[in-house]
Write a protein that binds this DNA or RNA. Structure first.
Lengths: 213, 213
DNA sequence: TAGATTGTTAATCGATTAACAATC
DNA sequence: TAGATTGTTAATCGATTAACAATC
């Protein structure tokens, strides 16, 4: 088997599909499936088999011609590509409804994401715990991000405070931001920002339904 | 001004940017800005001005050459395109952390989305209210979706129940599904599904940070 | 008028799909 | 071996970017 093809630029679309492959493989494994074809995997995910083979080929040769993919092996390979074998320390800023929901989300740790701290400005909330994770004052962000080696910051504060929080996260030494506030964040290019803009989903839904109903 | 160019197929990418334009125009309007150029708008959103002009040109001519776009007018036009002037009745299925957060999300109604009902299986929750919206048994879905003319269903149940809920929503007469469960839903092609797969965001973040740190 | 900025066509870039040789 | 399925190259499709005439 070839090693990873370094140098090749891999499309964002491909990267975004890898987690789907990983998740579906995991489910298949739990069902006791040991070998899966790109056809079968694609059917489960809603992606063409050619797409899957193309995506995977960017990283190596993980299948067996005439046979398919060994579920366990492909899972391990994709997990390695995605860096899921590694532990990431994360922090949430903003304990509103969404921040609270995310802080209670149980599936972070099995995926290697370890919630280390929660930040808020509300003095009523500071000092409390959500699932054994302490809520700290935002003033202590730098100290705690550094002490606990937190690499990823999650922003669930209202839009008007999001840029300030992003800047604080960056100054505290965070490397990636998962942003739920509906604003464009200005951060250095070295910081990786993933934005979840929930308002887009409903509006685009409205567009499509308008033309139909 | 031309009317909407019917027949033209508009890319999903374009549709997904319209809500960003709309939101940014709204903010600009609140700041008292009356005219905005594609350049300025693009700078605020993080999109090229050419992209904006191209996107808008699919629907008509909304600007004034040499001047820019009248904020109020462009907002009204995009709102109309997105169907935001219309009222949509929505329902949430699943009062977990995320469902609860969404049920408490205050910004639905100003955007024209009216939460009419919440569904759950938990008898402790049924009969209670979240922000004056009642939680009903899932058994009553058909009746309530029909009575209240609910067009959009939001799925925030655990992955293993999502398909069942989707099927029930469809049978109840819903036209669109906003799905937060990490599964591919099998529904008739006429049903518009928007999926928010939150697990993808963190995993892709992990990919990019792995190569960097 | 001169400068600015739109709307649109053409060029480029990127991603998906099709086809098929390789091979298990 | 024959059938199945991968990995990859080529073809197609779609989306973005560049360029510029139109015009306010």
């Amino acid at each position: 088997m070839k090693e990873h093809k370094e140098n090749a630029v891999i499309s964002k679309a491909t990267i975004d599909r890898l987690p789907l492959y990983y998740r579906t493989l995991k489910l298949s494994q739990q069902e006791g499936i040991e070998i899966i074809s790109s056809d079968e995997l694609g059917r489960k995910i809603g992606v063409t088999p050619e797409q899957i083979r193309k995506d995977l080929s960017a990283f190596g040769e993980f299948g067996k011609k005439g046979v398919g993919y060994y579920v366990r092996e492909l899972m391990r390979n994709i997990g390695e590509i995605l860096g899921l074998n590694r532990k990431w320390n994360i922090a949430i800023a903003g304990v509103g409804h969404l921040g609270w929901a995310l802080a209670n989300y149980a599936n972070f740790s099995p995926q290697g994401f370890d919630l280390q701290a929660i930040f808020d400005v509300d003095t009523d909330k500071i000092g409390r715990y959500i699932n054994e994770v302490e809520i700290f004052s935002i003033e202590r962000m730098k100290e705690i991000v550094s002490d606990r080696d937190i690499q990823i910051g999650i922003i669930t504060v209202p839009a008007e405070y999001a840029q300030d929080i992003a800047t604080r996260f960056v100054e505290a030494g965070i490397k990636g931001i998962w942003n739920f506030a509906p604003v464009k964040l200005n951060v250095p290019a070295s910081i990786h920002v993933v934005s979840e803009d929930l308002s887009v989903g409903l509006s685009s839904m409205s567009y499509y339904l308008s033309r139909q109903i």
